[in-house]
């Protein structure tokens, strides 16, 4: 079972991960996730200003600059983890929230 862990960033909160309380060791956490076989993907996203919306449902593709929704809080990065159930996913997310010093959202992928 795979879970998307979205990092919720806030433009008014510019604290960097490693400036937190000495616990902000994201790299070490990711290494451990990889070693324990949980990690599927992890990366930080560029700012929402770099986003574009693409709509090619009709005859011609329409490109729109910027994110599909403007908001103070936005997706700042993500983890995709493989976990047997939500308890494990939430434990990983709680640790991730601590090391990156952000609120996170955990959402399951549809089980294929």
């Amino acid at each position: 079972m795979q879970y998307l862990i979205s990092v919720l960033d806030d433009e008014s909160d510019e604290s960097t991960a490693d400036a937190a309380d000495g616990s902000g060791d994201v790299d070490a956490f990711n290494e451990r996730l990889r070693a324990d076989g949980y990690l599927v993907f992890v990366a930080g996203l560029d700012s929402p200003a770099t986003a574009a919306v693409v709509d090619n449902r009709g005859d011609a593709a329409i490109f729109t600059d910027g994110p599909y929704v403007e908001s103070k809080e936005y997706l700042g990065g993500l983890w995709i983890v493989e976990a047997p159930d939500l308890d494990v996913a939430l434990k990983l997310a709680a640790e991730a929230s601590r090391v990156c010093n952000r609120k996170l959202e955990v959402r399951p992928f549809v089980d294929e």
Binding site: D85, L86, D87, R107
Partner: peptide
């Protein structure tokens, strides 16, 4: 169902 909340008694730690 979707998030697979486990059907079990939590472990000693939790």
């Amino acid at each position: 169902k979707a998030a697979r909340i486990p059907y079990r008694v939590p472990d000693t730690e939790d």
